[in-house]
Design a protein around this nucleic acid. Sequence first.
DNA 1: TCGATGTAGGGAAAAGCCCGGG
DNA 2: GCCCGGGCTTTTCCCTACATCG
Length: 427
Amino acid sequence: MAHPLPDLCRETQLTNSEDGVECVKVKEEVLDEEGTGSEMQRQHFRQFCYQEAEGPREVCNQLWELCHLWLKPERHTKEQMLELVVLEQFLAILPPEVQCWIRDVDPENCSQAVALVEEFLLRQREEERLDGQALRSFKEEVVNFPEAEEVPSDTWQRVILGEIKEEEDGDSASLGDERAYGEEPENSGELGPQGTLLGRTGQNNSRNPDREEASKSQQGGCPEKEKMVCAPQGYQQAKGVTVQPRIQDERLKKCPECGKGFVWRSELIEHQRSHTGERPYSCSYCGKSFSRKSYIIKHERIHTGEKPYICSHCGKGFISKSDLIKHERTHTGEKPYICSDCGRSFSRKQFLVTHRRTHTGEKPYKCSECGKSFSQRTCLVIHERAHTGEKPFKCLVCGKSFGRRDILVTHQKLHTREKAFQCTDWL
DNA sequence: TCGATGTAGGGAAAAGCCCGGG
DNA sequence: GCCCGGGCTTTTCCCTACATCG
């Protein structure tokens, strides 16, 4: 029961982007090299037999070579190599049923593996909690079981992995096939964690270049994918197990407004708030309202100062886990977004988007005063101060004002130096 | 005229804060 | 409630151009 995740991650097109830059199938290569390729190297190393070489010296040499191929010390940091070794051991000591499941997903690092195991256990607990009737009805809803027959205990997990249909169809290989994965023509079969059909409304698309960029990338065409190496898809899939059950459209609760389908009524109600604009949850500190309870819980942390997610490297706290993950990349040096033009890598997609403007020459922020354009909004804001004469940064020593903080900092160093000189003179 | 110095401006990258969809 | 990703803002550094001064 292999789940060919790399297939799901595959960049299938070699297209030309708007600026004429060719989309390279780098992601596939990266995933192959870092994912299945690495696993193959690991197996070569682990399965190498004494008999395969002549004499202990040769055996040892071969092992060195294979180990190099697996851990790639020339490319990986010590931490990354340790990660591989620990991950391997972690997978090896897992209970067999978890091991079997997680190996198919092929996590790339320990945190992904841990997340997967936790999810597995969560699902398992959920299964135990649900009585058979409720479980069966849900399964019927999810995969449209033909009849209510005895279901094997691991069925729920396999529902999660979207397997059942294949087995029923007798087509075990079809999961890796992109046609088989999410065939809904309207929504390109993208399914959310709860089995809801994804598909963004794009209601926020005002004339903001960044927004447009992002919005484009959320649509099927994904111009960003054409231009960039979007490595993190592999992460998403391994971590979030995006191999989803295919839900029959007619079973979904549909939004009368946009037709989007949802498994649960509560999800539909929540979704409908995006149409009605209803925001029933108000912040007790600032009065700002939100459409969901979870939004307000997180929002109120801004006021309470609660930062429950602590960086294990520097101890800094963050309001949300995603912020912590982003921050931790500054310690680990993880930069999964690679520019296909120059090969530079970035820790965030937005950094890459901005960086790519240096290649394309795109300058979407235009000064309304003089017409000059800038690649970043910040640059435009600072530029506009030249027109308005605004100088918000004042030197506390001499009272001189500047339009930029960094200029003020440079300026203030003069005073520091003056003081130092005075000190020296005095001495 | 020339070099040193300070200021201004633009480009680019990185990080943090916050929000919202699934 | 969590995960994930995106938008926006702020900060910082580097480089270049220009004005001023000795």
